[in-house]
Design a protein around this nucleic acid. Structure first.
Length: 424
RNA sequence: GGACAGGUGGCCGAGUGGUUGAAGGCACCGGUCUCGAAAACCGGCAUACCGGUGAACCCGGUAUCGAGAGUUCGAAUCUCUCCCUGUCCGCCA
């Protein structure tokens, strides 16, 4: 969400930012309407506050007269009349502010200077690690998984529906091992606080991290309650300090959590339907950081490095892609996608998306910090990234580490947890 | 799920219709005192929004006592709904 004053005073910058996202045409009416509403909002505020001040003066006189035993019928009459006007203006104001804040929630974040304008075609790899493997003789992961008996797609679909997976035997154990590996590295080497959070959250939390109101169709909503299954642990983790003020000395705060993630993928029907590439429920270890505004740029580099570390440990070649403005998520100001190559499907798979949200989420969620120098509370900057998402990592492992004989080599960092060096 | 009891400023806590944004205390900041510190004493100490030509400061106004709605000339105080917390009972992994 944007600061109303910023919208008012830097409207050109806002328009330019929307243009870089390729969304100016679509959002221009929203911006114009917001500006108009802001103007009428302030006019109404002035009108209503003037009357409130008048009424306050009158009712005080009523009080004095009554205490003196006098009647105050005329004053009461006057106050009642003012009250009627106030009620009318208050309704008008509520209506205006309701529409205005709804509009503000629809505007995406402003991307940072280093983010190129335009869409996906302007994404650029900023670095890469390892060598993507030639894939002609590599079996896709869904065939490997079925052949080894570690992934049961059919029964997942039977018990839950398409896009739900059952891992079995060593497959299930791989999930548990990935969870332990990632949490151990992020807590032990990267200094994150390990957390275990609810996967059901309320509407306020979903608005705080900007899944709502725009993406409600992609969320699993609980029947009979205003609550949702999380699409990522980003939601509970970032909202931990919603409506709180942290001492600056506690920043940066960093949290990691394993959680299942639930996504309806409403807009993606028919895309990546095979295998593990796009499922409705998956597992992930998430990284979240709350930092001071001055440091969020460097903090994104740090966080991205933490996610990369896992790919290195799993010996999976990857590239780091800086997303162009039009491909950058709604709430993000700067995003790096981590993509690992899966030779069996012949695709780069996004296994992590590391973002700096600047103060966009902090403003919505009202997460602030008190500066050490004694200044007024300011909004923190929030960041998060997957570290990493399991299914595509598993797909990549099954394909990249596939051997000539069809078995799969387990990288050393993982085999410690798995208790097996090969999947046969 | 049922029955009670509660939700007031950073914290504790007073306040049941009218100069209450809110007593008192703690914490915090400044000062006096002291060689210095402690104690004592004095003073300060909420946030948001609107306006006063932009910013800083300042000034005026409005709102805020869990949230929302209502009664009233006037609500922290009365009524209703909801949320949350505590205690007891029931149920349950």
């Amino acid at each position: 969400m944007h600061d109303l004053r910023m919208v008012r005073e830097h409207i050109d910058a806002l328009r330019a930012a929307m243009r870089r996202r390729g969304a100016l045409d679509a959002l221009s009416p929203t911006i114009e309407r917001a500006i108009a509403l802001d103007k009428s909002r302030r006019e109404t505020i002035q009108a209503v506050e003037e009357r409130k001040a008048a009424r306050n003066a009158v009712t005080q006189q009523v009080g004095q007269k009554k205490r003196g035993g006098e009647s105050a019928d005329d004053l009461q009459q006057q106050s009642r009349a003012l009250g009627d006007e106030i009620a009318r203006l208050d309704r008008e104001l509520a209506e205006t502010e309701g529409e205005l804040s709804a509009l503000l929630l629809e505007l995406p974040n402003i991307t940072l200077d280093q983010v190129p304008a335009g869409g996906e075609e302007n994404n650029s790899a900023v670095r890469s690690w390892g060598t993507p493997r030639e894939g002609a003789r590599v079996q896709p992961h869904w065939e490997v998984g079925a052949r080894l008996g570690i992934i049961d797609f059919e029964r997942g679909a039977k018990i839950s529906g398409s896009g739900f997976i059952v891992f079995r035997g060593l497959g299930a154990r791989i999930v548990r091992s990935l969870m332990n590996l990632m949490l151990d590295v992020h807590t032990g080497q990267h200094g994150y606080e390990e957390t275990w959070v609810p996967v059901v959250v309320n509407r306020a939390s979903m608005i705080g991290t900007a899944q709502l109101p725009k993406f409600e169709d992609d969320m699993y909503a609980l029947k009979g309650e205003d609550a949702f299954l999380i699409p990522t642990a980003e939601v509970p983790l970032t909202n931990l300090y919603r409506d709180e003020v942290l001492p600056e000395s506690q920043l940066p705060k960093s949290f990691t959590a394993y959680s299942p993630c639930f996504r309806r993928e409403a807009g993606a029907a028919g895309k990546d339907t095979r295998g593990l590439l796009r499922v409705h429920e998956f597992d992930k270890v998430e990284l979240v950081r709350l930092v001071t505004p001055e440091t969020s740029g460097e903090q994104l580099e740090i966080l991205t490095g933490h996610a990369e570390k896992i790919l290195k440990l799993l010996e999976l070649p990857y590239r780091v892609v800086r997303l162009a403005a039009g491909d950058t998520g709604f709430a993000s100001a700067h995003t790096y996608d981590l993509e690992t190559f899966a030779p069996g499907v012949g695709k780069w798979l996004e296994v992590s998306s590391c973002s700096n949200f600047s103060d966009f989420q902090a403003r919505r969620a009202n997460i602030r910090y008190k500066p050490t120098d004694g200044g007024k509370p300011r909004f923190v900057h929030t960041l998060n990234g997957s570290g990493l998402a399991f299914p595509r990592v598993i797909a990549s492992i099954l394909e990249h580490h596939q051997q000539e004989d069809g078995s799969v080599r387990v990288p050393a960092a993982l085999s410690t947890y798995l208790g097996a060096e090969r999947l046969v």
